[in-house]
């Protein structure tokens, strides 16, 4: 892949799919400083993986794979924190979210319940909430469609139970 193509694809990703970065980082990282580092690492990994991207593949599916893989591997956060602070010179405050949840207690609850799931279940439920169909979720996660259906059902039940206990 040529440098200019890589740059323009990277720009497209950041402009059109920045929400993916934000939501995945928010789901996997509650701590704001860690989240900034995770966002940086996601961008680095997306950039590095771009030469392997094939245009016949759906860009958002490819992006979910990369970004989720980085987020799940984030237990190596100490390495990331120590090294990447000075790599990208960008204003991280651009990625600091406003306190959205304050205006919606149910959303805050939903985020809390999701944060209690294990890393793989988190990925599954986020993709489901992002309105991805089971086929696409299966493609991103690498499990069968029937497995996706079973797991989505199970996690949704778990979330509903938690909500009903709170109300």
């Amino acid at each position: 892949m040529e440098q200019t193509t890589q740059n323009s694809l990277f720009e497209t990703i950041l402009n059109e799919h920045k929400g993916i970065f934000f939501k995945i980082a928010k789901t996997y990282c509650k701590n704001e400083d860690d989240r900034k580092d995770l966002l940086q690492e996601m961008m680095i990994q997306v950039w590095q993986s771009l030469p392997r991207y094939k245009s016949d593949f759906k860009l958002s599916t490819w992006l979910y794979r990369v970004v989720l893989n980085v987020a799940i591997s984030y237990y190596r956060k100490q390495v990331i924190r120590q090294n990447h602070h000075q790599i990208i010179d960008f204003s991280i405050q651009d990625f600091v979210d406003t306190p959205i949840s304050e205006s919606n207690p149910n959303l805050e609850l939903l985020e809390t319940f999701i944060s209690e799931l294990n890393d793989l279940d988190k990925a599954l439920i986020v993709l489901y909430l992002e309105d991805k169909n089971h086929g696409e979720i299966s493609e991103i996660l690498g499990i069968s469609v029937s497995n996706v259906s079973t797991k989505v059902l199970r996690i949704k039940e778990k979330l509903k139970q938690k909500f009903s206990k709170q109300q």
Partner: peptide, 13 residues
């Protein structure tokens, strides 16, 4: 290759 499906890439890692 972290653009592989999550379970595949994570298993390798």
């Amino acid at each position: 290759d972290i653009s592989q499906p999550i379970t595949v890439a994570q298993e390798k890692l």
